[in-house]
Nucleic acid binder design. Structure first.
Length: 487
RNA sequence: GCUCCCAUCGACUAGGGGUUAGGUCAUCACUCUUUCACAGUGAAAACACGGGUUCGAAUCCCGUUGGGAGCGCCA
């Protein structure tokens, strides 16, 4: 019998802080896999560590997914057939399952204190044992003593009774057959003394109960997968398919972490990265369709994404390529989207008090689109569309400002501009040409000082466009201004 | 230390027995634009090393080296 079960995958973050960029990629791959296969994508909150719980984190997780356009089928807020989706609300379920394991003698109560455990570890290290492991002391406690301690309310944990085995093997979708030598697996804690489950227990139980078919997660989980395999076997459950994703790395090839740059999605949102670019970029970090295509939107990714084409080796998060993608996606945006985004950024900037029409902003975006990578840069690089230049770039002055000569050329030019009535682009161009002809000089002798006067810098859109955008009054004002300042 | 994973230009990657080892970002040059960008053209740039298998290995196998991850009452 072929088992063509409906694909069900999950993203299971723990709410300890802002969403890490690596976790976003895990969420994305799960989402793409689910959508590509017409399956379900589930969001489950792994909030079993009360010490690290961070209340705003759940909200941040949900908002981040929403921002990215990754929608889940079941999970917090939305609910679903397998609710609750907060592990902290599933304590009863975990207890039932450990009760079963204890009855089957596959798990046992352990009353050892943290002090004893620490001492044990220290001893084992001193003895240069290859690995520190729990010594199963409590496994051999007489049943009567166990009940007594339980009745007396002595704190306890529940441990899995791991039988020494030769080896544990499983098939990883991305890495193929993986084999772990036995005897290295500890009697892992299933239930902590605060009655909350550990990750190992909770994720196995929930994945099974929620009908998860593929566990797609980061490579950092690979070493603990044998524990999970053992648990599935202890319960007599069929394992899901595991797929361990390559890590996202710092430039020095260590696991992507702060200290070496921005690692939360929040950071990138704040810096003005487009969701289209970020999604496109992280999709390409560890995966390729196999062709030469670089630009994708979310739906296009869904069409072509397969787990088979996920790489095995870690990928460095290269900000340069992200920046390029950001520029590419920015240019693909429609005029109205661009105007809207720019207005949004403008409102948060020092230019927030300016009253600017859509028409004006469209002119700005049209002229600057090919020159920016970020929305912010429309007014950072193109500040002269929003304020008069107060200083003049030194190298530009040296190259383009020829003292008295420039002054007189601009004076002549200004007079002609002044006579213009509601000038069009063509009018500005005509004046430019006429001035050059009349003065019998090269156009460059007008353009360069003019650009300096109008913008204060040496680069930017065509000078005709700039005059047309800022208008006649500003053009004149700025010419007057530079002749005063550079005299 | 132990366990496991990984290894193609600086970065992301294609290729998976016979290729001038391809693309993209970044870099450099040229063209275009009297500026800057965009675009275009081109350059430089890689199969970690050693054995084996084979007529032939970047590709398959083994080893070495290097890198990474994990070894918590964290996830």
């Amino acid at each position: 019998m072929s088992e063509l079960k409906r694909v069900r995958v999950r993203y299971a973050p723990s709410p300890t802080g802002f969403v890490h960029i690596g976790n976003l990629r895990t969420a994305l791959y799960n989402y793409l896999f689910a959508r590509h296969n017409g399956g379900d994508f589930i969001l489950r909150i792994e909030d079993t560590d009360r010490t690290r719980y961070f209340p705003e984190a759940v909200e941040n997780i949900i908002n981040t997914l929403k921002w990215a356009g990754i929608d889940y089928d079941e999970g917090p807020v939305k609910g679903g057939l397998h609710a609750p989706y907060y592990q902290s609300e599933r304590l009863k379920i975990y207890k039932e399952h450990t009760d079963f394991l204890i009855k089957e003698e596959k798990a046992y109560y352990c009353f050892c204190t943290a002090e004893r455990l620490n001492m044990l570890r220290r001893e084992q290290k001193n003895q240069k044992l290859p690995q520190t492991k729990y010594d199963k002391y409590c496994l051999n406690l007489p049943a009567r003593e166990v009940s007594k301690k339980l009745n007396d309310g002595i704190p306890y944990v529940i441990r899995l009774n791991v039988e020494p085995e030769k080896s544990i093997r499983f098939n990883d979708y991305i890495r193929g057959e993986v084999e772990f030598s036995g005897n290295t697996i500890d009697d892992q804690i299933l239930i902590k003394s605060d009655r909350y489950p550990t990750y190992h227990l909770a994720n196995v139980v929930d994945d099974y109960l929620m009908g998860i078919t593929h566990v797609i997660r980061g490579e950092e989980w690979l070493p603990s997968t044998p524990k999970h395999v053992l648990l599935y076997e202890a319960f007599g459950w069929k394992k899901p398919i595991f797929a361990h994703l390559p890590l996202l790395l710092n430039p020095d090839r260590t696991k992507l972490s702060k200290r070496q740059g921005d690692v939360t999605v929040e950071d990138y949102i704040k810096k003005g990265y487009l969701k289209e670019a970020l999604i496109n970029f992280i999709a390409l970090l560890g995966w390729t369709a196999g062709d030469d295509r670089e630009l994708y939107d979310l739906n296009e990714l869904i069409d072509v994404f397969t787990l088979e084409r996920v790489n095995k080796s870690g990928a460095i998060f290269d900000i340069e390529k992200l920046n390029w993608l950001n520029a590419e996606h920015l240019r693909k945006k429609s005029d109205s989207e661009l105007i809207k985004s720019l207005r949004n950024e403008l409102n948060k900037s020092k230019y927030s008090k300016l009253q600017l029409s859509d028409e004006y902003l469209k002119k700005v975006t049209d002229s600057m689109k090919e020159r920016v990578s970020f929305i912010k840069e429309f007014y950072e690089k193109g500040f002269y569309f929003f304020e008069e230049p107060v200083t003049y770039e030194e190298t530009a002055v040296r190259k383009g400002w020829k003292g008295k000569q420039s002054e007189e050329i601009l004076k002549k030019f200004k007079e002609k501009i002044n006579q213009l009535e509601n000038p069009s682009r063509q009018d500005y161009e005509t004046v430019l040409n006429d001035t050059a002809a009349e003065l019998n000089t090269g156009k460059g002798n007008i353009i360069h000082p003019l650009r300096l006067a109008l913008t204060g810098v040496s680069g930017g859109p065509g000078i005709i466009d700039i005059m047309f955008i800022i208008g006649k009054e500003q053009t004149i004002r700025r010419i007057d201004s530079i002749t005063e300042k550079l005299r």
